[in-house]
Amino acid sequence: MSIAEAISSGDASLLPSRRDEDWRWTDLRGLIRQMPAASPEGRAWAWDSPLSGQVDVEVGVVNGRGSTDLEVAAGEEKFVAWRFLSTAEAGAHNAELWVTVGEGGKLTLVESYEGVSGGYLANTMVNIRLAKGAKVERIVFAADHADGVSVVDAKVELAADAAYSQTVLTHGARRQRIETRVAHPGAHAQLRLDGAYLLEGQHNADLTTVVEHQGVDGTTSQLTKGVVRDQSRGVFQGRIVVAEGADRTDARMGHHALILSDKAEIDAKPELLIFADDVQCAHGNTIGALDEDALFYAEQRGMPEDLARALLTAAFVGEVIERIEHDAVREVAQAWAAQRLEV
């Protein structure tokens, strides 16, 4: 079972299905009976993103082509936008990229997934390696087309004293999975792993994370929030593994979602797998509607119901966005959420 293999061989039977435990809520095999043809080469980049002009480097990857690996030298600081585009002619394509950040290096990486029209199956593999003391903030804007299918699989490795922060923002797609696997082999590594999904229509989004603590004194702080309306479906799978000997690990995971329609669905699986005793691990998971008391309060103050709902929802999601460290990116994220939530 591998999506990359399925795409390169054109064999749909290699796609993961709900029989695969880790894909039980994001069934690709059942969705794609026949593989789309391999994507043709896409045309060059044509439009600006809200961050164009502000970033040091802007890289475009069209239909899986044109990727260049990214390297941040020791002590260097970079702000990079990486844009992955699936064009109107796109079928199925793979892309694989490497990011290495040298000792003490600092990187702000804004990744966007942009689908021009539906019908594509895009698979992107990102490998990120942080050397000792390196610091990376990765923000993913998943702006796939409503009829697109997209899988992003990032593997992150943290050396000692490295710090990695991530925020994934998505409005979903026909099927979409954004997976992040982080290994903490080094001691004292710090990790923040956030996400927000705001879904409407028949969109699906699956945020999956796997964090493995192998070194001592690692910390993980994870906060994912979701809002689902109409017939959309949000999936959160978080797994924190603390290996034997990874003492004094402090890992906290939270997933909170608002389900705003009777036909929407949320599936969650927050897992803790602990093999060491000197640890503090916790997870919380809540799913429900907007707080009626808070709504009542807002309405009583003269606020129209729609506005009250929008404000409460925005405040709910805002907690994730406020955790974005980079000011310019946070502003773009705020605008993205405001547009989605119509505030």
């Binding site: 389900i259 599936d267 897992e271």
Partner: peptide, 8 residues
Amino acid sequence: HTVPYVEA
């Protein structure tokens, strides 16, 4: 280990 499944 804790492996909860939640489906709403």
